[in-house]
Design a binder for these strands. Structure first.
Lengths: 259, 259
DNA sequence: TCAATATTCTCAAAAAATAATAATCATGAT
DNA sequence: ATCATGATTATTATTTTTTGAGAATATTGA
């Protein structure tokens, strides 16, 4: 491990489960000499990616907060998505959480969420949290619309044994069904008692593969409400996709103008 | 510019004002050959710090969202501060925004904020946004409690000409007054029509220099309310400081146990 | 004060990044 | 379809950095 990967390797050790590290511990875990880690950490601290915590330990630094804001203000998916989430929550008329998730690094990550004012629960899909790719409506919709090449690569990497073959086939069928229907509805796959309804937000050209979801108490919605929520989610998702398409085309034109 | 500073230099160009860059543009701006920038960008994309946007342009990537969550879950100031902000907002009984800010990189940055349900305005202090160090109650409180050495260094770097001398003296007096009173109250220094009331959250040992603030419509609060809000902010801030002290001591002990 | 540990410094060796160029790959226009 | 244009990657000798081992120094707690 050297160069940039050294920095990355160090940063990636700072997880929610292990948020504080001493330099000797980092050195041992990464297998890199302490003197080198000290230098690495010094650079990271100077740039705000780490900061000194209690005593001789370090934790993630405020630079991430700053960059996150920058992203919140500029990422088209987040910028265009937030008002849509707000509308969805307002029109759901049931306690619920609306959210926007995307494919990232072999998993699914929520990039924006909004809860109705009176919602007594929270979804496990929380902004910034990587979630499994094959469970929950949010993830399944994304998986269903992943480019074939990427999907196959994921299947490969998953390391399928013989009896997994059948499962993969079942999954393919389910995903084909999701593509056909245009939405996915599940219950208790992630959070017990909570149901998810998700629709795709796809922009092939821009490489955007995302999904818009509502999470609500499964027991709290009857069949009629469920239909209404599906309609709400599907139409919000396509509105958002349309909006993104416009932004994308505008951005493309702007680039050409510059060039 | 080489090594880590290259990566940093590239990332730092992605600001809210200039969120998308092409490689040639990055190369020209940084003065680094295009082939090198391509390699740098490739590494950053692979690690999620950048991602490809429209056409040949790049923007900040989702890794920042992930790290930001990690920080939200683990940064003691944020973790301990958020429930306090919630309480403050609930007990303010006026439309307001409560927030927590800290010193960062020569400026002041908000790290957490919460608005009362019916608040029709927003403060310029928004999570992740660097703000000036000498304007607004939030910043002044932090400046007033900065270690002397750091303060003097900042004054130096500010590049004081002759007539600035007097201003610096006035500032020193004002800051001494803030230290004595234990809070700072200003109006329309950042946002026209908005008043700020701030109290310090200081943990010398842990290097924490922060402030807790309420922002409300200046015209909407009479003298009695103002006093009440000051009391609220001051007591919330000292509660928070106390909480942080406990956490810090616990963390220090834990470190020693490991070692 | 001392002892223990964290951190920085030094410097020769080694590895890795660099930059110029060539080659390849997309993309949009004709 | 083909071409032209620009984006991106590969190649490679060179040079610059980084690296790492240990020494030196600072910091901290007893």
């Amino acid at each position: 491990m050297a160069g940039f990967s050294r920095f990355l390797g160090v940063l990636r050790l700072f997880t929610p489960d292990t948020p504080a590290w001493t330099v000797p511990a980092l050195a041992e875990t990464t297998g890199v000499p302490a003197s080198t880690v000290y230098r690495t950490v010094r650079d990271l601290v100077a740039s705000g990616f780490l900061e000194q915590a209690a005593e001789a330990s370090y934790r993630l630094g405020p630079a991430f907060i700053e960059f996150d804001r920058s992203l919140r203000l500029t990422d088209p998916l987040v910028v265009a998505g937030r008002p849509v989430l707000h509308d969805v929550v307002m029109q759901a008329h049931v306690p619920c959480v609306a959210m926007l998730a995307r494919f990232y690094n072999g998993s699914v990550m929520c990039v924006a969420d909004e809860a109705a004012a009176d919602t007594p629960f929270r979804s496990s899909y929380e902004r910034g949290r990587p979630m499994p790719l094959v469970r929950g409506s949010t993830s399944k919709v994304i998986l269903a619309h992943l480019p074939t090449r990427q999907f196959n690569k994921l299947i490969e990497n998953a390391g399928l044994d013989n009896k997994a073959e059948a499962k993969v086939e079942a999954l393919r069928t389910e995903l084909a069904d999701i593509r056909k229907r245009g939405f996915c509805s599940t219950a208790s796959e992630i959070d017990p008692g909570l149901a998810g309804i998700s629709a795709p937000v796809i922009l092939k050209d821009a490489g955007i593969v995302a999904s818009l979801s509502i999470v609500a108490h499964d027991a709290g919605i009857d069949e009629g409400q469920r239909r209404r929520l599906i309609l709400l989610v599907v139409s919000a998702a396509s509105l958002l996709a349309e909006d993104l398409r416009h932004r994308y085309e505008a951005a493309t034109k702007a680039t050409q103008k510059v060039a």
